[in-house]
Design a protein around this nucleic acid. Sequence first.
DNA 1: GACTGTGAAGCCATTCACAGCT
DNA 2: AGCTGTGAATGGCTTCACAGTC
Lengths: 213, 213
Amino acid sequence: MKTLRVPEATVTRLSIYSRFLERLDRNGVTTVSSGEIAEGVGVSPAQVRKDLAYFGEFGTRGVGYNVKDLMKYTFRILGLDQTWSLAIVGAGNLGFALCTYRGFNIRSFYVAAVFDNDPTKIGKRIGNLVVQPLSKFPEVVKNENIRIGIIAVPISAAQEVADLMVKTGLEAILNFAPVALNVPDHVEIRNVDLSVKLEILTFNLGFKAAQNL
Amino acid sequence: MKTLRVPEATVTRLSIYSRFLERLDRNGVTTVSSGEIAEGVGVSPAQVRKDLAYFGEFGTRGVGYNVKDLMKYTFRILGLDQTWSLAIVGAGNLGFALCTYRGFNIRSFYVAAVFDNDPTKIGKRIGNLVVQPLSKFPEVVKNENIRIGIIAVPISAAQEVADLMVKTGLEAILNFAPVALNVPDHVEIRNVDLSVKLEILTFNLGFKAAQNL
DNA sequence: GACTGTGAAGCCATTCACAGCT
DNA sequence: AGCTGTGAATGGCTTCACAGTC
């Protein structure tokens, strides 16, 4: 088992495979081939095998993969065999949606706290959470053992929130504000930009039209 | 000007550049170099120049780029010099957040209608929209000139909604359900998976820990 | 016969480095 | 002197193709 650099694209697909495997498992499927996984998630069979090969040999030649086992392996690889407490900063519509997003809640993630600085939002209930003032952030992070923060504030406040997260000792940040944030190298950060993909679509619609001239 | 195949990564970055340029422009900056753009969005200067080179020569040697002009070019390239009407299907928390998401509304996108099949949601107001039954979908799409659909329903309903969108003649789909959807080649589709990036973070946190053994 | 695991080949994107302008 | 535009070099991801195994 070689544990060299794993391409981020591989990790992305692994996350997708794991969700597909969950579905197969729920449907009672016990064995699956790389071709079936490929078909189910829209990549090539060789890609599936290469991706898995970064982490070990999970299949049986001539047979395929055991769904339950492979699912467990992918979960362990992705760190989903434990529960991660999340802190969301920003209790606007996006923050609200994220708090109640089932995709986070069922798959090993647990929103432990929501914060905002807006007095009209502090104290508001979201599910079984109460929006807390940012001043409580360090305390809650410590008590709830939070290692990952989610930024769901407007651009203008994003860097400030990131700084607070770094200072408080968070190890990873998921940023929904459409700006590049500055954080030290030891903090993992990824951006989710809700309009980039939309603009890829409009680019392609325009491009297609141009090619039909 | 060569208009060969443009890598999707280039389009993604173009979208990010364009937002950065908007910000510079609002701050009154008139000229910018590839190095400054690179710094601002977190890529290399050569990357910025290469990306722009796919579409033409926009800069002045020895000087840099005119912010306003480059902003306009990137907008036109991305198809943002027109307004795109969007139809959102799914009026849960995510659909709600998307309806009111400013990132969509200000940058050339306009949510023209929201749909749901749940009788408890139909008729509900979201901003100045009213949730409509799916049966109205074809009619509204036609009347409002909608070309892009957004899927914000649970996995179980996603393919069905995609089929409806295809049948109704939509040209592009942004899918927030974490499944691979089947659509014909002439329909552009992209997925936004809110938990993939989170799982990249947990993967990396686990990986780092493993490397410190 | 079927399917995995993997070196090799192919391909695509990024980086380099410098010529060309201003 | 400074910065763009770009061919060439590099690096890395994906696909191919087949040996290995059940």
